[in-house]
Design a protein around this nucleic acid. Structure first.
Lengths: 224, 224
DNA sequence: CCAAAAGTGTTCCGTCTACACCCATGG
DNA sequence: CCATGGGTGTAGACGGAACACTTTTGG
């Protein structure tokens, strides 16, 4: 294996940008680093890729440790490999963006790791190149939200149209006309109205909707 | 540095998907592997990332070796990290997509490395997961071609509207109406008509156009 | 009875699409 | 003179944006 051994190896890590939706706002999970280098700086949560796991496995492991959740929606943001991006050693990292329903999240874990939900427009400076990763993740989210069914990952299985609209507004950063929005939703058949009513947000009550994955898989083209 | 040394290092490589445009068709550069494992299989061209170079530097180095060109348009496609993706050892790779003007390309290098220009729809099976990378690169190209000025990288500095249209048709894989296409081009002010005429492709001659990068940078929003 | 959120259609305007013929020239 | 690719405009369809009032009910 001389072909390989002429070359040098490097550490590879994964970093997770975890988005949630709460109080009508997009939030992401950051914490203060509890190790050197960079102890005490705000940072994304990450981990090294082991010799016996794929990049996706590593990201899933990190996310599981962080949230107690499996089968989280996750998408690669990209690889970051500047020589001195990590102040300690040469580490190449692959960033993953995850979307979770905050209600599923175990808040004990949040406290255990000293994590906070922060709005993207109020992010403090982050460790190393993590701010770049966050910007790139948000750019990707914005591009994908109108052609991929991402928004449902941020909501409970049953949701109202007002909630759904708020998710779109939070990600796109602009207000949407309610009637036009609902008109477009009606044209999408994998967003199904249920018989159920949510009475928690208004006195009148709002119809609950559901994302029908099977219908989506049958015809995964839409435009919102 | 115990924090790092607990973890294992891996080899990291870059692989380049080099697109060119020739005879009205999109082509990409592949070659037969000249080393084990996989000797003789069709493959993208790649190389290991050195300890003292960034991912981008490594990709540029590989592209320079391959084409003799510097300052090539290049975009990261993504990181690929399945455990056994490389049949020899555990290697994580980062794929980069490059666009070049075939006329600038040094054909001696092509012969030296035994490379071939192949149309994407006539690709033979490729080494390891290289076919997956190519598919992803093409998907990205298609998404970006209408909102980013990619097409000019595949053409000489002066080009005719027919050439430009052929590039769009090749990437999108569909025919475009000539009048509608030219109407849209007229609305884009960073595509400038010059006084020059190309007489090589028709007896009448066709006006040559130019991509004005300064105008584009002033207002980098367009839609074609 | 009133505050607060849910729900509902129409009109207008701009954009995209479809479509066919004349022009200039080299050979 | 004719074959070849270059160049041009219009009408109709469609989709997106703007816009305001009624309904329900818990407190």
């Amino acid at each position: 294996m001389t072909y390989y051994s002429e070359h040098s190896k490097v550490w590879v890590s994964v970093d997770c940008i975890v988005f949630g939706f709460e109080d009508g706002k997009l939030k992401l999970l950051i914490g203060k680093r509890q190790m050197d280098p960079g102890r005490g700086e705000w940072s994304l949560y990450g981990g090294f890729v082991g010799a016996e796991e794929s990049l996706e496995d590593a990201a899933n492991r990190v996310l599981y440790n962080l949230t107690g959740l499996k089968k989280i929606y996750m998408k690669q943001v990209g690889a970051f490999g500047a020589i001195d991006r990590d102040p300690g050693e040469r580490v190449i990292t692959v960033a993953y963006c995850a979307l979770i329903n905050v209600k599923d999240y175990d808040d004990n874990l949040r406290e255990k790791y000293g994590l906070q939900w922060v709005a993207p427009d109020k992010l403090p400076p982050l460790y190393s190149d993590h701010s770049t990763m966050v910007r790139k993740a948000i750019t990707l989210l914005r591009k994908r939200i109108s052609t991929e069914p991402l928004s449902f990952n941020l909501l409970p299985p049953l949701f109202t149209l007002t909630q759904l609209q708020k998710v779109y507004e939070a990600i796109l950063g602009e207000e949407i006309d309610k009637r036009n929005f609902r008109k477009r939703i009606k044209a999408i058949d994998f967003i199904e109205k249920t018989e159920l009513i949510d009475k928690t947000t208004s006195k009148r009550g709002a119809a609950l909707y559901r994302f029908n994955k099977k219908l989506y898989d049958d015809d995964p083209t839409f435009k919102l």
